[in-house]
């Protein structure tokens, strides 16, 4: 499923469009869009590299079903 690019946070630097390994993101005149949403591999390169943290991922239901947030603190902490 395509990642979401926040229009408020995006400064249109174009890095996401440049580095996407499947070239699914495109810089249009007014904004940056995920032009080929079905080709998203969910590698998160765009979300990781965005200098403004403007991108959030979305995953298909099958990826979400077994997803568990691993706690960052132990019980003792």
């Amino acid at each position: 499923m395509p990642p979401i690019i926040s229009e408020e946070k995006c400064v249109k630097c174009g890095l996401c469009a440049q580095i996407c390994p499947l070239d699914v993101i495109k810089v249009e005149q007014k904004r940056i869009i995920v032009k080929y949403p079905d080709e998203c591999w969910h590698c998160r390169a765009c979300a990781i590299d965005c200098p403004k943290q403007a991108i959030t991922m979305r995953y298909p239901l099958s990826h979400m079903m077994l997803h568990v947030d691993v706690p960052t603190k132990t019980k003792e902490e």
């Binding site: 996407c20 390994p21 499947l22 590698c43 390169a45 590299d49």
Partner: peptide, 13 residues
């Protein structure tokens, strides 16, 4: 490289 070597291929992220 058809994408960008910083994130391309199976080594991506």
């Amino acid at each position: 490289e058809k994408a960008d070597t910083r994130r391309s291929g199976s080594g991506a992220t």
